[in-house]
Amino acid sequence: MSFLSATGMTGGYGGADILTDCNLSVERGEVAVVVGPNGAGKSTAMKAVFGLLNLREGSVVFDGDDITRMAPQERVRHGMGFVPQTRNVFVSLTVEENLEMGAFIRDDDITESKEQVFSLFPILAEKRNQPAGELSGGQRQQVAVGRALMTKPKLLMLDEPTAGVSPIVMDELFDKIVEVARTGIAILMVEQNARQALEIADHGFVLVQGSNRFTDTGEALLANEEVRRSFLGG
């Protein structure tokens, strides 16, 4: 079984099911990417993995434990870090204070973790005393990822990390995500920039109407003619 194995996920927000028999998985040190058209249920699938959506059917097994009924805050303590797409920084707090907020579950010395984040994102070290609300969109995303890393996660989940940023910033963020994965952290990422995301993905999941349409390596999905034509713009 995979390090994270979410199988048969079926459920919604009280009405009709948004997810139907949806499966996602990722191994330690790998990048798994969830792509698909708008309304495909990508972010909903991510929320289901994190416990923000009650599943009617299916299970989520993480690091050998069935966490299907575990509350989101318990999943954080179990080793999950989640970065939502919007409202993912405390705009009135400084960069450093945002990072410190990320360590709320820890009672050990966080200095080394903070320096690791500053090493990964040097611009944050420069702006450590600046309110996060004054940063650019790309810099805010770095703060959000850095804050999640402060929990020392075993799995980092990112919901549209490059939304609203320039192509250059997108490439930089993807490079950093690969760098994080190389430290042994599993990455599960929902991304609208499908082609670029699949280029860095070990595995990819193409969702359509809440179900898996294609599942393969990132390289194989990029080479798949139907995937290219239907989801990657040719």
Results as ranks from 00 to 15, higher is better:
51 G>M: 09
29 G>F: 09
209 Q>W: 15
147 R>F: 00
177 I>S: 10
196 Q>M: 13
107 D>P: 00
18 I>G: 08
75 R>L: 11
46 M>V: 13
160 E>Y: 09
72 P>T: 02
205 F>H: 02
125 A>Q: 02
84 P>C: 04
203 H>E: 09
27 E>S: 15
188 L>N: 09
151 T>I: 07
76 V>D: 12
10 T>C: 01
94 T>H: 03
126 E>N: 07
111 T>V: 14
189 M>H: 07
29 G>C: 05
139 Q>M: 12
181 A>K: 10
91 V>C: 03
61 V>T: 13
191 E>C: 02
8 G>Q: 09
95 V>I: 06
5 S>L: 13
49 V>T: 06
93 L>F: 04
103 A>C: 04
107 D>G: 12
7 T>K: 14
4 L>S: 14
189 M>A: 05
38 N>L: 07
8 G>Y: 05
92 S>Q: 11
176 K>W: 06
212 N>H: 02
114 K>Y: 09
164 G>P: 06
163 A>M: 13
221 L>Q: 08
10 T>M: 01
187 I>C: 13
108 D>R: 13
55 L>H: 01
141 Q>C: 09
133 G>E: 01
117 V>L: 07
169 V>C: 12
202 D>F: 09
127 K>R: 12
217 T>H: 10
167 P>R: 05
140 R>N: 08
59 S>P: 03
213 R>K: 11
228 R>F: 12
107 D>I: 06
83 V>W: 10
44 T>K: 03
38 N>Y: 07
16 A>D: 10
29 G>Y: 01
71 A>P: 15
222 L>Y: 07
181 A>Y: 06
99 L>N: 00
127 K>N: 13
25 S>I: 09
69 R>Q: 14
156 L>Q: 06
193 N>Y: 06
101 M>C: 06
182 R>Y: 04
178 V>M: 11
211 S>E: 15
229 R>N: 10
185 I>A: 00
174 F>T: 12
105 I>F: 10
96 E>W: 04
115 E>P: 08
35 V>I: 12
104 F>L: 01
216 D>Y: 10
58 G>Y: 01
193 N>W: 01
119 S>I: 02
30 E>V: 08
51 G>L: 08
46 M>W: 08
75 R>M: 13
10 T>K: 04
63 D>I: 11
221 L>F: 10
163 A>W: 11
228 R>I: 09
166 S>L: 01
113 S>A: 14
101 M>I: 07
